[in-house]
Write a protein that binds this DNA or RNA. Structure first.
Lengths: 294, 294
DNA sequence: AATTACATATTGTAATTATAAAATGCAATA
DNA sequence: TATTGCATTTTATAATTACAATATGTAATT
């Protein structure tokens, strides 16, 4: 009846933090530092740390705080698979997306109708609807009900999306403020190489999709212009919904990753115009081959 | 205690509808047609028509519906100034924007704090906050409270916005799907001419700003790509908040309108590349001269 | 055949709680 | 001096409910 806690998310965030920072066994995890990093108070961080202690990832020392019991590399495998790792996104959101894509939901729907259909409380439904509205594929009608926009379902808008991405990313790279971030380039290179050298056969669809998006968002972030980055992030959130329904053609991934690496090469060689042009055709090339299930 | 009605908005919409369609006295206003146009049911439309009847704009004929009593041109002046014409946007939203721009609101705020400060109910506050979140200049923190982003307040992001607009609009015009809409061009020409021939001295700041935005959005709409159009609309909603605080330099308006007309000329002459390049410098030129009050 | 008028069904909002969670101040500790 | 541990204050949410507004089916009217 009270609100649901954020501390499970903080738990997951701490694990992620430990991994990306490649921390070692014995390192200290100061409470306030974690709180600042995740923009919450110390309270939920403490709750999360207590849980991690029961999981054996950290151990508490009286009046000194929590310390890692194992190296970052070992952390994930030690995590018990039983507990829901990260909740962050309400499954209801995905159910609505699926049903809309599958044509099970009419263009206009009322809140009560959806509450009955999914058997959820209004508050929870509204949260998902607001999120969807923020992503731009549903909107409140002036009177009762909501209306889906065709963003997700039409072939035409799917193609428009690719054009938009290609233009934004190319232009972002051509901005005078564009400046490659060495550290990020290094990481991206590592990921793309791993993906190209076998990862494309074993990684999950979600992992592949995430790696791809992060590559492109990293490039746009180098433009140092938040409006370009926001625009790309916005459309990528949409893409995720549609592309999950497309069987990934894994045979194309080696070529994709080598193209990604080629882009990094060109940028680092200072051949920005070439890189931007290549990026454009790289994106448009991806759109022509896949076929959305609509 | 129950919800607030949409019918006042419908009332305003009907007046607008009558004017933009240049309807004449005696013309019929079918209920269902209006309901479809505004995407509501007949109920609020009937309520609005009843109100318009008391205002003398329409008259009811039994079993035949409502009919205009005057020509569209006369409608607005006949509207009693006493009633709030159109509410649509909660003033609370603007108060928050003003206070944030004036630096009266910290970067982090809690809902209760804002409720006390503005003396409003939570439900109303949340509506404004959600709208602001959708516009991208505030975000929910994971725990309690909300955090403003620097979108509105920093000089840097103000300039980034101009770059984004210039790029998007130029590129939209260069898309192969771009196709000028004759009717819209004609209307835009009329508005810009009126503005250039004296309107720049008499129109209100809001009217000038609206005309300018509509011109640019019309151009982008011709690209037939909703992602480009959405991106521009999104950033224009932001701009409205900031530019309201800048004293319009009316002496620049004749030049601005003549540039707008020049763009229309170039497009209609089929010189799209030139038009797009000119559009780019037109937008960037505007950014350098104005100075935001921050 | 289209539209209205009216009766009825349905919908979403605003107000009001109880309550768990988050935030925070401060003494104790390393 | 930085950090923890703990007690206290503050915050936001989920569940309920009443009711005005919206939506809609249908007979009557033109």
């Amino acid at each position: 009846m009270a609100r649901q806690s954020v501390s499970p998310q903080i738990t997951a965030s701490i694990l992620e933090f430990v991994k990306t920072n490649e921390m070692r066994a014995g390192e200290h995890l100061p409470c306030q530092m974690l709180a600042d990093a995740f923009r919450v108070s110390r309270a939920p961080v403490n709750a999360a740390l207590k849980k991690l202690e029961t999981m054996g990832v950290v151990r508490a020392e009286p009046n000194r705080g929590y310390f890692l019991t194992m190296d970052a590399a070992k952390v994930e495998t030690e995590t018990p698979a039983g507990e829901p790792q990260r909740e962050e996104e309400d499954p209801l959101y995905f159910r609505i997306a699926e049903d809309r894509l599958a044509g099970k939901l009419e263009e206009r729907v009322s809140e009560n109708e959806l509450m009955r259909l999914y058997d959820v409380a209004r508050s929870r439904l509204l949260k998902s609807l607001h999120r969807i509205a923020e992503e731009g594929w549903i909107e409140r009608l002036p009177g009762n009900g909501w209306a889906f926009r065709e963003t997700l379902t039409s072939r035409r808008s799917y193609e428009e999306g690719y054009v938009f991405r290609a233009v934004i990313e190319q232009q972002a790279m051509l901005l005078p403020t564009f400046r490659p971030n060495e550290e990020e380039f290094r990481k991206a290179r590592a990921v793309q190489t791993a993906l190209g050298e076998g990862g494309y056969e074993t990684w999950s669809r979600a992992e592949i999709f995430k790696a791809n998006n992060e590559f492109h968002e990293m490039l746009v972030a180098c433009s140092q212009n938040d409006f370009f980055l926001d625009a790309i992030k916005r459309i990528n959130r949409l893409r995720r919904l549609i592309e999950y329904h497309i069987t990934i053609d894994r045979s194309r991934l080696p070529r994709q990753t080598s193209e990604h690496l080629h882009i990094l090469d060109l940028v680092e060689a200072g051949r920005r115009t070439e890189a931007a042009a290549f990026l454009y055709t790289h994106i448009m090339g991806a759109s022509r081959i896949k076929t959305p299930r609509v």
